[in-house]
Amino acid sequence: MFVLLMTVAFISVAAGSVSVNIFAPLSDNDSMIIFDIRMPRTLLAAVSGAALAVSGYLLQTFFRNPIAGPYVMGISSGAKMTMVLAMTFVVASGGSMTSVLKIIASFAGALLSTFLILVLSFRVKSMSVLLVAGIMVGYICTAVTEFVVTFADDTSIISLHGWAQGGFSSAAFPGTYTAVVLILIGIAGVFIMSKPIGAYMQGEKYAESLGVNVRGLQLLMIIFSSFLSAVVTAYAGPVSFVGIAVPFLVKKLIKQSKPIILIPALILAGAAFTLFCDIVARLMFSPIELSLSTVTAFFGAPVVLFIMAGRKRGQRDE
């Protein structure tokens, strides 16, 4: 999986709308293309994919349901809601959106959704009910978004639609460095929790018998999952399917459920998958760039369906 990631990363840096021979001495323009355009984009796509994969894994473990993911649970919807609020009111008053404001708006929305889910988690004991509640939170955020869009001008609507498709086209240092640091902090936190997560996966009673504070662990899983997806949403907009498809795929491929092995695999696979989708999005119809969510759904959804069909067939045979 590491080799796959390195291969895809190499292609991401080497290939683009302009032909650059990376094995030859680079001119000033070529250097700018490689180091200022392709590399920040490659790095951001890779760490974002890793973050989304780990985030999806945490949610799927928490809810014990393979369809749980940051997109499904309303975290992306919350980010979109606060983003449209910011866009509509700031720009309608003649002001300008700044990158910092966009990041803060996305973050705030994602964490707001997380807070609502957390509040619900203290009251709702059933995981399946909590999953539905999370989906409802997403619907509420979407309804608020649509309500605000009704009064927004056409340019804001178009821009919001573009943002909501997700993408890494304007990735640049040092913003990318900040995203990398934040995501690494989040992933490090998840890594620290890998043993208790492993115990939790065996059952809550089993985990409690080993001395795990199950409620505390659940709280941290939600927080870290939301944090990781909030960072990605802030820098790249909502990116769908990576959080659902990659954990599913990795578990099937490596046939391991130990978090200490699974988490690194998810990081590598999430990074590779997102990088691959980003390459397709920017090169397939260059200079027109496809929306990232379109590509991730195009590749991710059939994979999930295929695996589910295989799983159902296996269960029926049993």
Binding site: S17, M32, M97, S170, A172
Partner: peptide, 27 residues
Amino acid sequence: GAPDYETLTVEGCQLAVENTMVTHKPE
């Protein structure tokens, strides 16, 4: 919202003229 930065760089774009839609895309 998604200009081809590589082509703009290699061909030596000297000025980008945008409209106010770009205020939604400060990045």
